[in-house]
Design a protein around this nucleic acid. Structure first.
Length: 176
DNA sequence: GCAAAGATCCAG
DNA sequence: TGGATCTTTGCT
């Protein structure tokens, strides 16, 4: 299965009240404090899995939440994992994306630079416009524009996007 | 040991 | 719009 990452959220270390790592290392978030390039998979609301990729140096607790994927390959298998037909919502939203890719909690702490979980570097044509908005579903520091998505891609979670959009926080600026 | 909140999703 | 659903955490 292959998916293109089209929407992410950044979670910083101890300075970020909304981050799981803000209150220090626990048994749940310990992999978030690992070295960059490792996965942090956790269960949310008792039923959904979310995938993060650790980005900061070891001990800092910085990670990026994968919020939405554009299905590229293995769409039939992803459909089966999700038990839905519509491709448009196949892997939009953190819980759906994780489920579509068939992730399990056992992937927590594994490297994302080799199978079974592999994230490739961005292609050079990814100089599309990237938009930022405040993060979603959190109650602290939610003014920070740490959510990123591809403006020209339809596979990000639109409903939440408009629901949470406030003009003052919306930035439209190219990134890289 | 208990209570509460939580980086969500789906049906109605 | 609200309910499902349950793990993790923090406090007693």
């Amino acid at each position: 299965m292959v998916g293109r990452i089209v929407e992410t959220e950044a979670y910083l270390g101890s300075n970020d009240a909304a981050s799981h790592s803000a209150k220090g290392k626990t048994s749940r978030n310990k992999s978030m404090f690992g070295a960059a390039g490792h996965a942090y998979v956790y269960r949310i609301y008792g039923l959904h899995l979310c995938l993060n990729v650790v980005t900061g140096p070891e001990g800092l607790g910085e990670a990026v939440l994968i919020r939405a994927l554009e299905p590229i390959e293995g769409i039939e298998l992803q459909r089966r994992h999700r038990n839905v037909d519509a491709v448009s919502t196949l892997s939009t939203g953190p819980g759906n994306a994780a489920k579509a890719m068939g992730l399990t909690i056992t992937l927590d702490g594994m490297s994302v630079t080799e199978p079974p979980l592999y994230i490739s570097p961005p292609s050079t044509q990814n100089t599309l416009s990237i938009c930022t908005t405040p993060r979603i579903g959190i109650s602290k520091d939610n003014h920070l524009p740490l959510r990123y998505f591809m403006k020209s891609n339809k596979y990000f979670s639109k409903a939440r996007f408009f629901k949470n959009l406030s003009v003052g926080n919306f930035l439209s600026e190219p990134l890289n």
